[in-house]
Amino acid sequence: MLPLDELYQEVILDHYKNPKNQGTIENPDYKGHGVNPLCGDDVEIWIKLENGKIKSLKSIGKGCAVSQASLSMMGEALQGKSIEEARQAVEKFKKGMLEGGELHFEEYPDLEALEGVKKFPVRIKCAVLPWNTFLEALESHPSA
């Protein structure tokens, strides 16, 4: 596959054009806002827990296909997980993106489509932004 075709796979463009879990949550347990000041990608997420698990993760984002597809997929991948499981998944994703690890997630195979981003070093930060925003959201409400 050509690098461009690998980057702009159908899965990614589908998530970009029809993002999942769009919207906000009133009285969320966690809330985060991440921006990439250099390129203007902007991600806001709201997280609601139930019985210690992520019941709902909603988001609103503006930005490129890579950041917005990554945001949409993250919401799908993390729902239903406990905070600790989610944290582990985020670390695995970041390792996959930044340190050459695998992006294979059995519970959400779509994420593998982001493998193509690795061939575009300047775009890796776009893919990672939503996941860093998730981690920051957890930090911003440590007592919740």
Partner: peptide, 10 residues
């Protein structure tokens, strides 16, 4: 409907 960064990369 296309973000400028995607334009730039392509």
């Amino acid at each position: 409907g296309i973000h400028p960064h995607d334009v730039g990369t392509i």
